[in-house]
């Protein structure tokens, strides 16, 4: 039993961070401030989630808790509102969207809605960025790494400043 626990511990340490890791909201908010043209004032940001999906809902709660009444990022103040997956048509009312984990099957629809509404999509799910369905992927451990999908950004007509792009990984 002890051996099994030890093995489990070792595996936990050596395995890559799980896909469903929570979004680092502070970093995500700052990413929004590097959009061009720079956002100013209150920036309504969607939390795209799937009701009934426990992973997605937990992520949404976590994001809401981190944002609280709003997070300042540059000249912008990021405020969030939940957008269920069934209401993606409303995504065009937002400049940015935090895409919760556990929405693998919905990513194509989210990407299409984001492209129609010129919305920057930000997620902790690197697979979404690799598939060019999310614009920005953020991983926080062991250190902050930001990945930007050029194709997804182009599809959504999203632009970032050059200094930002030189610090992130563009795919």
């Amino acid at each position: 039993m002890k051996k099994r626990k030890l093995l489990g511990g070792v595996l936990l340490l050596t395995l890559p961070w799980p896909v469903g890791a929570e979004l680092n909201v502070q970093v995500a908010a700052r990413v929004v401030s590097f959009l061009q043209p720079p956002p100013n004032g209150a920036v309504q940001t969607a939390i795209v989630f799937e009701p009934g999906n426990s992973v997605s809902e937990a992520d949404a709660i976590s994001i809401e808790r981190a944002i609280g009444g709003g997070v300042a990022a540059g000249r912008a103040s990021i405020r969030t509102r939940r957008v269920p997956i069934s209401s993606l048509g409303a995504l065009g009312n937002y400049r940015a969207a935090f895409v919760t984990s556990g929405l693998r099957d919905e990513q194509a629809g989210i990407a299409a809605a984001a492209a129609r509404g010129s919305v920057v999509t930000i997620t902790s799910d690197q697979a979404c960025v690799q598939a060019a369905r999310c614009v920005v992927g953020i991983s926080s451990t062991p250190r902050v790494q930001i990945t930007v999908s050029r194709a997804a950004a182009r599809a959504a007509n999203v632009r970032f400043g050059s200094a930002f792009l030189m610090l992130v990984k563009e795919i």
Binding site: R30, R150, F160, G161, A163
Partner: peptide, 22 residues
């Protein structure tokens, strides 16, 4: 052509973003 657009280097904002000095 890539995605980058207008932005000069804001060391403080970039450091806050990346979690270390830039």
């Amino acid at each position: 052509p890539s995605l980058c657009a207008a932005q000069t280097v804001d060391y403080s904002a970039l450091a806050d973003l990346m979690g270390e000095p830039v």
